Simulated assay, not measured.
Amino acid sequence: MSLYKTEAIVLKYYELKEADKIIVLYTRQHGKVQAVANGARKTKSRLAGSVELFTYSDFLLYQGKSLSTISQTEIINSFASLRDDLFKMAYASYVVEVVNEFTVDEEKNEPLFALLLATLYMLDRGEELELATRFFELRLLNLLGYRPQLDACVDCDLDLAKIDKVKFSSKLGGVVCADCALEDQYAMRINKGTVATMERLLEIDYKKLDRLKVPESTRQQLAKILPNYLQSIIEKKLKSLDFLKTLTMTN
């Protein structure tokens, strides 16, 4: 059994026995790791705070045969507001669920860790929750090899400028012309302005995200297209999405 130290963010947890938890961590050095937090459900547990959802900490872990065990922790940022504010919690829950569903255990991806951390900081500040989430979705797609084709029809390669009625096909992975859209009955209408915003989100520094002006019509299209594309890739429904949709519709 070896001992190792790593920065990590809590993606999810499960209850184990009467007082323990299994914590799903996304670590900087080792990718996704599952670890047992002994006694974490006890009121006075020294681990309780650091294994809360979204918390970013330094972890000292023992590597076991199947699961690691958490030995020590030191909180770097608890991201308490992401649990206390309903809207922040909804967006953050969606973000960590996406990371959990798109990754496998012990496959290091430091740029993805950095993206997740930057997104949690943006959500924690409460600035542009929706746009920060769209930024996250597109950057994750890019990092994991699912970047959508936006400059031409993904099927026939017709230049975007020559397409009159543009649609987005989750099945094909990008924009499509009217003829090629027939191959995907679920292809969604997308404005060229929305395509331009997607391209901008793929390039912009997240620190400048608050300067990006995005019309409401574009926001609405992105909120439908990007989650749908993500779900089509993993071929399953993201559970947190229904709550997020309900919350944003009633706002």
Rank of each mutant, 00 (worst) to 15 (best):
N100L: 01
L53N: 08
T103M: 06
I76T: 14
L131K: 14
A80K: 15
G126F: 01
I70D: 03
K171E: 09
A19E: 02
V36K: 10
I163K: 06
C177I: 03
E128F: 06
F87N: 09
G193Y: 01
L226D: 00
L244A: 11
V51L: 02
Y186C: 05
M122E: 03
M89S: 13
E137Y: 11
L209I: 11
D184I: 06
A92C: 08
M1D: 06
A40W: 01
V214R: 02
L238S: 12
N191R: 08
F113I: 01
D210P: 03
K21F: 04
M188R: 14
L53H: 10
S232Y: 13
R139E: 05
T248S: 15
A80G: 12
T246V: 09
L209A: 06
L226Q: 03
R46Y: 02
M122R: 13
Y4W: 08
I75F: 05
L117A: 07
F87H: 08
K162V: 04
E18F: 02
V104P: 06
I9V: 14
H30I: 01
D159N: 14
I75W: 06
L222F: 07
K88C: 07
Y14N: 14
E130N: 09
N100E: 13
V99Y: 10
V51N: 08
M89A: 14
V95K: 00
E107T: 14
T218E: 10
A181P: 11
P215C: 02
E203Q: 13
V154Q: 13
S81W: 01
L82W: 00
N142Y: 13
L11I: 01
F102R: 11
S240Q: 12
E216T: 11
P227S: 04
K12P: 01
F136Y: 07
M122L: 13
E101C: 08
I163S: 10
L212Q: 04
S81K: 14
G126W: 00
T133W: 00
D84A: 13
K65I: 02
T250E: 15
E235H: 09
A132T: 11
R200N: 09
I9H: 08
I23E: 09
E18R: 13
T27Q: 10
R219H: 10
V214L: 05
G49R: 03
K208D: 15
F54M: 02
I22F: 08
M198C: 09
H30S: 12
T43I: 14
R41D: 03
L150N: 15
I225P: 14
T250S: 15
D58V: 00
K237V: 10
V104N: 12
K167G: 10
A35M: 03
N228Y: 13
E101M: 07
F243V: 15
V166A: 10
M89P: 02
G173V: 05
T103V: 03
A80F: 12
N109V: 01
Y14E: 08
L116I: 01
L244S: 12
A35W: 02
V10S: 07
V33C: 11
L16D: 04
L112F: 12
K17H: 07
F168S: 12
L202G: 11
